[in-house]
Design a protein around this nucleic acid. Structure first.
Lengths: 158, 158
DNA sequence: TTTACTTTTGCATAAATATGTAAATTTTAT
DNA sequence: ATAAAATTTACATATTTATGCAAAAGTAAA
């Protein structure tokens, strides 16, 4: 596997694990992993990989790997099989909202319930969304830290 | 249907019927159909419509409408069939509660999610009830107005 | 209608992305 | 290993896209 091909797989793993909204942002992440390239090269890489740029609720725009490719890669890693399907976590008041890929909310909710976090008063899952309610007066701080551990690639506010 | 909304549907039909590889190209096509706008406006239109730019074998890059968006567009004209099944809307704190006829909660929730109201952090549906959570600090005012439009016959508090 | 308010737009410009070209690197054949 | 061919890269720059801001257009309330 040559350097360029290696880099492709790193690029893929980065944009699959966190929302990346510009090539410059991705260049920085690549540098952290030991891959130093210029923006022009990255542009050509993304073109070669058929990576699309899509408007995104929070981040403005993000890069995504089109479906067929994603599906192909989807079941390559077996660990963290469940939390990988979490796409976003946010809070509003004492409610936490977990977004997952379609159909995964239930599996993720079961996982959360099994963790028995003391702050969580209850959870409820739809198809791709989970609400969990915090006990009154509980701070988010600890639970945010715990959830961060669970999915290191998701940015949880505060 | 206002001017902007009309334009959206023209944009959609253009990029669905032929490969468009830049906004300037699309501006020309729009002009041919009687819609004259600047590049900045088009950029915002495409963002709002969640149109993605994807590398393409022959044309370099083309604009595409993601699936979900297509689905959204598809059911706008049957949306009143769905909202007719809402029986009540109320609020408690930053949670909105929508009651529907039995079995309709899911269909209504999907509709709500497709609307992408910026105030709504997430929704979750049971059989005849939907909870939706507002983002922190967001006022109910605008969302109440929007929901009122959606179902003119329901009285929403405040 | 008039007023207050919200949304949409154009303009100008900033930010981001794509690409021609020559140099560097890698691959292939001898 | 060396030369020739092919691929990949950086650099510089052209092209394309996004966005702050003020003006214009559109809506709702009185």
């Amino acid at each position: 596997m040559n350097k360029r091909t290696q880099r492709f797989s790193v690029i893929r793993s980065i944009i699959e694990s966190e929302p990346i909204s510009s090539q410059d942002e991705l260049i920085i992440k690549l540098k952290e992993q030991g891959y130093e390239i210029t923006q022009g090269t990255l542009s050509r890489d993304l073109k070669f990989m058929h990576v699309a740029k899509v408007p995104h609720r929070e981040k403005g725009y993000i890069y995504v790997i089109p479906d067929q490719m994603a599906a192909h890669q989807a079941d390559t890693h077996i660990s963290s099989l469940i939390t990988d399907n979490i796409t976003n976590i946010s809070f509003s008041g004492n409610i936490g909202i977990v977004h997952t890929k379609a159909g995964y909310a239930n599996a993720v909710a079961v996982l959360l319930e099994n963790k028995r976090y003391p702050e969580i008063a209850g959870t409820i899952a739809g198809d791709d969304t989970i609400f969990f309610v915090l006990h009154e007066g509980q701070s988010r701080k600890r639970i945010v830290r715990e959830l961060s551990k669970l999915c290191p690639n998701i940015v949880i506010p505060q």
